[in-house]
Simulated scan of single mutants.
Amino acid sequence: MKANKNVRFSEDTSAQVGIGTLIIFIAMVLVAAVAAAVLIQTSGVLQQRAQQTGSEATQEVSSNIDIKNIEGIRAANGDELTNTVDMLRLQLGLQSGSSPVDLNQLVVTITDGSSTNTLTYTDGNDPASEFGGENGNLERLQTTDGATDLFAVREIRDEDESFSQENPVMNTGDLVNMYISTASEEANTENHQINIDGEDFPTENSESGLTLDPRTEVGIVMTPEAGAISQASFITPSTYGVTDIVSLYP
């Protein structure tokens, strides 16, 4: 018969409480804090970029100039009309939902297939020039650099009175006329005048380098500061007839 044996289990309730354990614990806390800070900062930057990208994308698709129609105006020497279109009058508005468009920042490119002009806005109130007043912008087009480098604008409808020559910003519902000189060599002679909205403007010294004869293919591109570009392409009629106003587009 075997004798009973007493079995004892040792109990060790002590733990590591030294400086090494404390350092490891603090290091883990610091690493977690740094990782959390990096994640928070990264998420904030990504959110800002996403908001900016979304805003820019919305503006790109919502700022659209609507070219409603284009008319050509011929210069005249007395009762004799030129055989070319010497001024374009474009009626412009904004498409539904469009953001405001600053015409000061608009760049217009026009080509007749042989020559191309790149145009920017003029209000005609250049302190270094003699042009000013109600017709200063149109008078400015009747100069060599004005005909090749500038376009002019007059408002037709501006219910909120936000559009002015000094601050040409179009809002939804506004309607304006844009004028682009296409004066040819034929119109750039003495005694030729062009009638714009009931006012006569001499075309001498205003050659644009463009020649809009009958059956000329014309392309116009409008590039705003922000938003989609607007384009219009047309071919001038086979004959201009005996009128000084020619319908060109649409």
Rank of each mutant, 00 (worst) to 15 (best):
N125A: 11
D79K: 06
E80N: 05
T116M: 11
L106S: 08
Y121D: 05
F131R: 00
D123T: 04
I110Q: 08
E80A: 08
I110G: 09
T84C: 08
Q91N: 12
R74S: 05
E80R: 11
D112E: 09
P100C: 06
S63R: 09
D112L: 01
A76P: 10
G124Y: 06
N125G: 06
T53G: 07
E60P: 03
A152Y: 13
V108F: 03
G133H: 10
D79Q: 14
S114K: 10
G133Q: 10
L88G: 10
E56T: 11
Q91V: 01
D149Q: 14
D123I: 04
N64C: 14
G133K: 13
S98M: 09
N137C: 05
L103S: 01
F131H: 03
N135E: 10
R74H: 04
G97V: 04
L92Y: 01
D145V: 15
Q52G: 05
D66Q: 14
L119F: 11
N104P: 02
E155H: 06
R89W: 00
E71P: 02
N64E: 14
L88F: 15
Q142E: 02
D126G: 07
T109M: 09
N125Q: 15
Y121N: 06
S115V: 10
G93Q: 02
F151S: 12
I110W: 06
A57G: 15
T148N: 00
S63G: 04
N135W: 02
M87A: 01
G78S: 12
Q59S: 05
D126W: 06
S96R: 11
D123A: 03
D79R: 07
P127R: 01
T148I: 03
G136T: 07
Q95D: 13
S98T: 03
S115K: 08
T116H: 04
L150D: 15
T143C: 05
Q142R: 14
E56Q: 08
D123N: 11
L94S: 07
A128E: 13
P100Y: 05
G97I: 04
E155I: 02
V85A: 05
Y121S: 02
S115E: 12
E60S: 11
V153N: 11
T109Y: 06
T122E: 07
Q52W: 06
P127H: 11
Q142A: 09
Q142M: 15
Q142V: 06
A152V: 02
G124I: 02
L92F: 06
E80M: 00
Y121H: 05
N64W: 02
G133W: 07
N83S: 15
E155F: 01
S63W: 02
P127Y: 03
A75S: 14
D102S: 15
G146C: 09
D112K: 01
K68H: 10
T58D: 14
R140F: 00
N104D: 11
N117E: 09
G113A: 04
V107Y: 04
T120S: 13
L138Y: 08
T116Y: 03
P100M: 08
D112V: 12
I65R: 01
T144Q: 01
T118Y: 03
I65H: 01
L88M: 14
T111M: 04
G54W: 10
A128N: 12
